[in-house]
Simulated assay, not measured.
Amino acid sequence: VAGQWVRVGTPAGAVALDDAQRAEVARLAASGQTVVSVAIDGRFAGLIALADAVRASSRDAVAALQRQGVRVVMMTGDNVETATAVARQLGIDDVRAGVKPADKAGAVTAFKQQGRVVAMAGDGVNDAPALAAADVSFAMRSGSDVAIEAADITLMHNDLAHVAAAISLSRATVRKIRQNLFFAFFYNVLGIPLAAFGMLSPVIAGAAMAASSISVVSNALLLKRWKA
């Protein structure tokens, strides 16, 4: 640039730093910022601190998942200091920093081998292998096409709160399915022996079948009252 060699990169890679400069890098990283250093003609010129703003709703979303009994793990390619600072803001205890795309997929596979049901949320190209490896995966609408293609569910709003809502709704749906199976089996287990011994007239049997269908449909319609 203007006849000078300008190099921008990681603090450890762009140029050698002295103790004071390394201390400043550590301070910025501890506050949740990603730090890059700038060198001009091989000499240190300065530091640039970059940071993504944490959504106000993200901490509430993490708390909602934890209340549901979901273990939340944060995996990121950022350095340990930055990742730890962001995780602290979100209330996440388990942080995996400096993770490469292939390592994310490997971590998902390792959790599955432990017998866990794994959900993965991501929006970048580098998240696609882990999204594909998870039991269920979520991509953001604003995410990359590769992530959306790899994910099972695409959230129409870029808000992690909808991950908690999707899990809550799916659990409510499974409960309704089990309840409806109980109703269906109850009517049949009670009615078939009575009909076999001639103790149930066709009229009553038909009414019982209608009542079974009505109870199952009515119970399923209660899902319309579901709230996150």
Rank of each mutant, 00 (worst) to 15 (best):
N126S: 08
S215R: 00
A195F: 14
D127P: 02
M74L: 15
F111R: 00
A211Y: 05
F185K: 00
M209Y: 09
V99N: 00
V216N: 04
S213H: 01
V54D: 04
D135I: 15
R116A: 11
D135Q: 05
A220F: 02
Q66V: 02
S57N: 12
G91M: 14
V99I: 15
A39N: 04
I153G: 05
F138I: 07
M75H: 03
T76R: 03
R96P: 02
K224Y: 00
L190W: 14
K100W: 12
A132M: 11
A139I: 02
V174Y: 05
N158A: 10
A128K: 08
L131K: 04
K176H: 03
A211L: 13
R55F: 12
A107H: 15
S58P: 07
G191C: 14
K104E: 09
L131Y: 15
D52T: 07
V25N: 12
S142W: 10
E24T: 13
G3N: 01
R178M: 07
V70S: 01
A147Q: 07
Q21T: 14
D135W: 12
R22D: 11
F44P: 00
S57K: 10
F44Y: 14
A20S: 08
G143F: 14
L160P: 05
A211R: 03
A87R: 07
T10C: 07
V36G: 04
V117A: 10
S57R: 11
V136A: 11
A184L: 04
A207T: 08
A139Q: 00
G115Y: 06
G42L: 11
R22N: 12
R59K: 14
I92F: 10
S37A: 15
T34S: 13
A220W: 01
A164N: 07
A172K: 13
D127E: 04
I153C: 06
Q114L: 11
I204R: 02
L194T: 06
T109N: 05
N126M: 07
A121Q: 06
G115N: 05
A53I: 14
L155E: 01
D135V: 15
A107F: 15
V203Y: 07
S144A: 10
A139L: 11
G191I: 03
W226F: 15
V8W: 13
N219L: 02
